[in-house]
Amino acid sequence: MNTFLQQLITGISIGSIYALLAVGYALVFSVFNFSNFGFGATMMFGAFAAYYVILGLKLPLFVSILLGMAAAGVVSMIFELVIYRPMRKKNVMRVYLMIAGLGINIFAPNFMLQIVGGAVKGFPSDWARVTMTVGSVNITRSDMLALAMSIALLALLWVFLYKTRVGLGIRASAFDTRTAALMGINVNVVASAVFLFSGAAAGVAGCFYGMKYSVYPAMGAVATKGFIASTVGGLGSLGGAVVAGLLLGFLETMIASYISTTYRDLFAYALLVIVLIFLPGGLMGRQVHDKL
């Protein structure tokens, strides 16, 4: 039982990172109908920003997380402004936006590799590494902080989306971008806000990922799991993204623990395929049909 509880906590802590990443994917998809595959790169920049803030400026952990979020948000906005917006204005097919995102995701880690080297860097916070024992279960402060901040951020995001004018604009754009534009909503402002917030979510995921593991140029590869969670949850559904992220983390841990790591990715990707076959809109997503 103790082992199962420990595995459960491990699964939730991994899942909370997936959930944050999935929310970022969902946010962009809900408005622009494409998945920003540059998300892993954004996450990596956020983690490196926090890392160097602590090392260089000697600022406390919480301040470094906030600055990491801000940096990732700005990077995400720059991607939107420089890469996605010009492409959107040319009305290119959505698939080209995603391919551009894939390009960013390969460019960015290799660029960082040349700038900072490929070494894996331990996140410079002793506070985050302290392990706490609750009953028979061990959990690190960083895991507890990740879970608490994930919940707080998702709550803040909900308030922003449902209680502010910009949030109303985002929701209107998510419903129908062209109509929202005709109604006077500035889609470019909405786009900047969406990329800022999704980037900030990636940044905070990067910080917690860095605390849990380490900071290194290729760390953004984990964003693929966030995309799977986002798809399984229902592309564009924030709630679905959170549920699927936690579910994926839990399933991966249990399969690795009680079956074999050989089957872990097999199950994870089989889950993606099965959900897409039987629930094309995901667990909690809206049904969208392309004209084929």
């Binding site: 991994i14 380490s214 590869a221 841990t253 050989t262």
Partner: peptide, 20 residues
């Protein structure tokens, strides 16, 4: 004996099982 895949960085599930 437990296993992992290339590029894995998360081993807590396997470590917990092996530690039993």
């Amino acid at each position: 004996v437990s296993t992992y895949q290339i590029n894995d960085i998360e081993f807590r599930a396997q470590i917990t099982s092996l530690a039993e």
